[in-house]
């Protein structure tokens, strides 16, 4: 065990016994119960399950957007149990987030939005940042829309800018929560396939929550949740078939 740990890097995400409840005392409502989950390097994992089963809560814990309560979560080498606010902020910089809404800054152009993901790294120059933003916008098929503001783009284009922003900082992990929910079938499919292809090129693992049965085929593995627990793989399999 000791030997294998040295030779192989730890998985980007390793959850052990993660339990989480909203509220406190008698009003505490458990939302996650003893969740065990690992994401391997470069792996694309889809997380499905009924509404209210705790998928979003789990994603916010992994993304260091919420403080842990019980259990252990190793994300990109950082233990989140008992991590300080500063440690969590630092970890977030190494994660690419894609939200249900694009959440682009309305007063910035597409390339400025993407460059925002790079401004935290103060070693880059402004020219480098814009160059990288343009390059990645070209990769998501928006090479000519760099100067457009979000309100001049279609929903699918905005979400592609959001994908570009998530990837721009060379993250070690992509977390996405229903990124296709606000899009129609076609552009939703385009966006996730684009995300998959770009992540594959870079070897970045993805953990993606979705209700959308049309995009299940991009996954290496599908994990189902129910009532705050991960459903064992044998029971989860039929989801993929159906």
């Amino acid at each position: 065990m000791d030997g294998s740990r040295v030779s192989r890097p730890p998985p980007p995400v390793q959850l052990r016994g993660v339990t989480y409840a909203f509220g406190s005392g008698a009003l505490a409502r458990p939302v996650l119960r003893d969740v065990e989950l690992a994401v391997a390097p470069g792996e694309i994992v889809l997380l499905t399950g009924p509404s209210g089963s705790g998928k979003t809560t789990l994603l916010t814990l992994i993304g260091a957007l919420r403080a842990m309560q019980q259990g252990s979560a190793q994300v990109l080498g950082q233990e989140l149990a008992g991590a300080s606010e500063a440690q969590r902020v630092a970890l977030r910089r190494r994660i690419g987030f894609i939200f249900q809404q694009h959440n682009l800054l309305g007063f910035l152009s597409a390339r400025q939005n993407v460059a925002m993901a790079l401004e935290l790294d103060r070693t880059t120059s402004e020219a480098e940042r814009l160059e990288r933003a343009d390059a990645i916008l070209a990769q998501v098929g928006l090479g000519d829309r760099g100067e457009s503001r979000p309100d001049q783009l279609s929903g699918g284009q905005r979400q592609r800018v959001a994908v570009a922003r998530a990837l721009a900082g060379n993250p070690g992990l992509i977390l996405a929560d229903e990124p296709t929910a606000a899009l129609d079938r076609q552009s939703g499919g385009e966006v996730v396939r684009l995300l998959r292809d770009l992540a594959r090129q870079r070897g970045v693992p993805i953990l993606l929550v979705t209700h959308d049965p049309r995009i299940l085929d991009i996954a290496d593995r599908i994990v189902a949740m129910e009532d705050g627990r991960i459903v064992p793989a044998s029971q989860a399999e039929p989801v993929r078939a159906g």
Binding site: P10, P12, Q78, R94, R122, T123, T124, P171, L173, R202
Partner: peptide
Amino acid sequence: GDDAGDEAPPPTRPPVRRGSPLAALWL
């Protein structure tokens, strides 16, 4: 028991270098 995580090389990033302090105000 935490050393495995800490010793692991950060996935893609080079170690953080301190940039110009002016950028911290200008940006």
